Simulated assay, not measured.
Amino acid sequence: MMAHYRASESKREQFRRYLEKAGVLDSLTNVLVALYEEREKPNNALDFIKHHLGIAGLESDDVDNLRLELNDLQHKYEQLMEENKDLKNRLLQYESAQEDPNPE
Rank of each mutant, 00 (worst) to 15 (best):
L28R: 09
A97G: 08
E99A: 12
L73H: 04
A56Q: 01
K50S: 00
N71R: 11
E69N: 10
N71D: 11
M1F: 11
H75I: 03
K11P: 01
A3Y: 05
N71Y: 15
K21Y: 01
E83G: 02
L92H: 13
F15D: 02
L46Y: 12
A56R: 00
A3M: 10
S10M: 11
L28P: 01
V63G: 02
G23I: 06
V33K: 10
K11Q: 14
R12L: 14
S10K: 10
L80C: 13
N89V: 01
D47C: 15
S8C: 08
L25K: 00
E82Q: 10
D64P: 00
V31Q: 00
N84T: 10
L66G: 03
L92N: 11
Y77M: 07
H52L: 01
N30C: 11
L53V: 00
F48A: 00
A7R: 12
D72N: 15
L73D: 03
E95N: 15
K41R: 10
A56C: 14
A45K: 14
H51G: 01
E99F: 03
L46K: 13
K85N: 10
M1P: 02
V33E: 01
R90Y: 09
P103C: 07
E37T: 10
E69R: 14
H52C: 00
M1D: 02
R16A: 08
E40V: 13
H75L: 05
E40G: 04
L80R: 03
R90W: 09
N84F: 01
V63R: 09
N30G: 04
K50L: 01
N30D: 14
E95G: 07
A97H: 12
